[in-house]
């Protein structure tokens, strides 16, 4: 079997996952998209394991690890989502903007409001 088929599929799946992470608002949907991306990676791992006939079976072993970690991740992720929902009654990712730079931008670094007014 050509390597190209599974690898291309993995690339496309990954891109779909990227789109989902970037475009979806619901945190749970974002988690699902992340799963898609993880699976794309898994596919690659398996493909190359088979292609290279790895004696350590590292591709498959790592795939198993990834699956386990993904399970843990989803568990933790959902816990966090629940916490957020409990605190804010919303899990829309683009509304969590506590990191935003809030005060109005100043023209000169370190300039106080009074000075700016005076300069005008």
């Amino acid at each position: 079997m050509h390597v190209v088929y599974p690898v291309v599929l993995a690339a496309l799946l990954f891109s779909v996952g990227v789109y989902g992470v970037l475009a979806r608002r619901n945190a749970i949907l974002v988690l699902m998209s992340v799963e898609l991306m993880l699976n794309a990676v898994n596919l690659n791992l398996v493909t190359f394991d088979a292609w290279l006939k790895d004696t350590l079976a590292s591709g498959q072993a790592l795939t198993l690890f990834v699956i386990a970690i993904a399970a843990a991740e989803v568990g933790l992720g959902l816990a966090i989502v629940l916490l957020v929902f409990r605190n804010r009654s919303s899990i829309a990712v683009d509304q969590l903007r506590d990191l935003a730079d809030r005060d109005a931008p100043s023209a000169v670094p370190g300039e106080t409001v009074a000075e700016r007014e005076a300069a005008r």
Partner: peptide, 22 residues
């Protein structure tokens, strides 16, 4: 002042939306 204003423009992207950052 203009350097500051330019910085202010770029600062607009720092709107706190993690998706935008990503």
């Amino acid at each position: 002042r203009n350097a500051g204003r330019l910085g202010g423009l770029i600062r607009l992207s720092q709107n706190g939306n993690p998706q935008l950052y990503l």
